[in-house]
Simulated scan of single mutants.
Amino acid sequence: MGVALLLLAAFACAKSGENAEAAEEAKTLASSSAASTTNDQGRQFIRTADMKFKVKDVAQSTYAIENTVQKFGGFVTHTNLQSVVSQHKETQVSPDSTLQTTKFTVENNLTFRVPNHRLDTVVKSIAKQVDYLDFRVIKAEDASLQLLANNMAQHRTDAHRDRMQNAIDKQPRKLNDIANSENDLLDKQETADNTKLESLSLKDKVAYSTVTLALYQNEKVRQELVANEKSVNAYRPHIGLQIWDSFKTGWFILEGILAFIAQLWSLILLALIGIFLFRKYSRKAKPAL
């Protein structure tokens, strides 16, 4: 009894150690310094993560990931949970039933955004769902110089636009010159607006990281026994009823013929009278021998 308890305890410890090791391995695979904001030191990084991995159950993992994203202030922008059928087979097991066998894989392509400083935490939380990691790509693109360049360009454009505006307002010009100046001013304003929009887009990408996940699970088999639809022959009457219906149909045809003949009584009467008169006069006209 004591030996059995020791073996059971050893097995439990080994199993616990395996689970802990698997969890730590998944965590290590998912974690990345590129996802951490600890050493940014004033730089502004656009962080993106792209991962593909197998899970035990795609639907349950999807719900867990969506809850995690919401918990850390993020939001889902795209999710496509679906079953991909690889094989479908129908086998008739009896005259009135068929066995349908379907092999399919459940998968989901998920895209969400989370605050930049929460990316590392979210990625580590997602690692708990990983059963087998296909790949993980995390990128950190420094956008500081691009934001600075956009800011400088916007200042230059704004200053040039203000000078043009003052020149147009103060100096009297011809109508054509004013129109050309106004068009040039509109072009400068459009350039300034585009630069501002680009800067806002970069700041949004810096503030919220984009994560794309591809989840899948082992192939499943679904079998369902369904009833067959009865053919037309199943509703045909028995031979005795068919013979009786044939007799009735023949009688109806005979009735129709008699009714049709009855409708021609006047023609038949004229034909009989004609035959009678023909025979009568043909006898009189015949010479006596």
Score class of each variant (00 low, 15 high):
residue 202 L to W: 04
residue 32 S to F: 06
residue 71 K to E: 07
residue 59 A to C: 08
residue 229 E to D: 09
residue 24 E to M: 13
residue 110 L to N: 06
residue 11 F to S: 08
residue 140 A to H: 06
residue 108 N to E: 05
residue 4 A to F: 15
residue 211 V to I: 07
residue 129 Q to C: 08
residue 238 H to I: 04
residue 55 V to Q: 00
residue 277 L to N: 03
residue 273 I to A: 01
residue 208 Y to I: 06
residue 136 R to H: 05
residue 274 G to I: 09
residue 54 K to R: 03
residue 154 Q to D: 10
residue 89 K to V: 11
residue 77 T to F: 04
residue 104 F to H: 09
residue 77 T to Y: 05
residue 11 F to Q: 03
residue 266 S to N: 02
residue 204 D to H: 06
residue 226 V to M: 00
residue 252 F to M: 12
residue 149 A to L: 12
residue 43 R to G: 02
residue 173 R to P: 02
residue 173 R to T: 00
residue 160 H to D: 14
residue 63 Y to V: 04
residue 6 L to P: 11
residue 16 S to R: 15
residue 190 E to L: 15
residue 143 A to M: 04
residue 284 K to C: 03
residue 146 Q to S: 08
residue 17 G to A: 03
residue 258 L to G: 06
residue 137 V to F: 09
residue 256 G to I: 04
residue 145 L to D: 12
residue 122 V to S: 00
residue 286 K to P: 02
residue 119 L to H: 05
residue 264 L to C: 01
residue 180 N to C: 08
residue 3 V to P: 13
residue 141 E to Y: 11
residue 69 V to D: 01
residue 11 F to V: 09
residue 87 Q to P: 10
residue 212 T to H: 12
residue 207 A to E: 10
residue 91 T to E: 15
residue 40 D to C: 06
residue 238 H to T: 09
residue 26 A to V: 02
residue 96 D to H: 11
residue 33 S to T: 13
residue 143 A to Q: 04
residue 210 T to E: 03
residue 202 L to R: 06
residue 95 P to G: 04
residue 178 I to V: 12
residue 109 N to A: 07
residue 286 K to S: 11
residue 9 A to E: 09
residue 222 R to F: 15
residue 92 Q to L: 14
residue 147 L to R: 02
residue 163 R to Q: 13
residue 145 L to E: 08
residue 124 K to E: 14
residue 231 S to A: 12
residue 286 K to A: 13
residue 222 R to I: 11
residue 127 A to E: 13
residue 135 F to C: 03
residue 264 L to E: 00
residue 195 T to M: 14
residue 25 E to G: 13
residue 141 E to I: 09
residue 75 F to D: 07
residue 278 F to L: 15
residue 263 Q to A: 09
residue 43 R to F: 07
residue 199 S to C: 06
residue 283 R to G: 08
residue 4 A to Y: 15
residue 157 T to R: 14
residue 35 A to V: 05
residue 93 V to W: 03
residue 201 S to Y: 04
residue 1 M to D: 13
residue 123 V to G: 11
residue 164 M to F: 07
residue 89 K to E: 12
residue 92 Q to A: 12
residue 122 V to I: 08
residue 14 A to K: 06
residue 6 L to V: 13
residue 60 Q to H: 08
residue 122 V to C: 01
residue 49 A to L: 02
residue 136 R to T: 04
residue 101 T to R: 10
residue 103 K to C: 11
residue 235 Y to S: 08
residue 265 W to D: 00
residue 156 R to S: 11
residue 158 D to F: 15
residue 216 Y to T: 06
residue 40 D to G: 02
residue 227 A to T: 00
residue 168 I to G: 01
residue 245 D to T: 03
residue 107 E to G: 09
residue 221 V to E: 03
residue 130 V to F: 01
residue 269 L to H: 00
residue 19 N to K: 15
residue 147 L to N: 00
residue 249 T to E: 15
residue 123 V to A: 14
residue 57 D to T: 09
residue 6 L to R: 15
residue 284 K to Q: 05
residue 136 R to P: 07
residue 23 A to V: 10
residue 106 V to P: 14
residue 201 S to C: 07
residue 35 A to L: 07
residue 93 V to R: 05
residue 13 C to M: 06
residue 268 I to P: 00
residue 195 T to K: 15
residue 224 E to N: 03
residue 154 Q to N: 14
residue 96 D to Q: 10
residue 15 K to R: 12
residue 190 E to F: 10
residue 28 T to N: 14
residue 88 H to T: 12
residue 125 S to D: 11
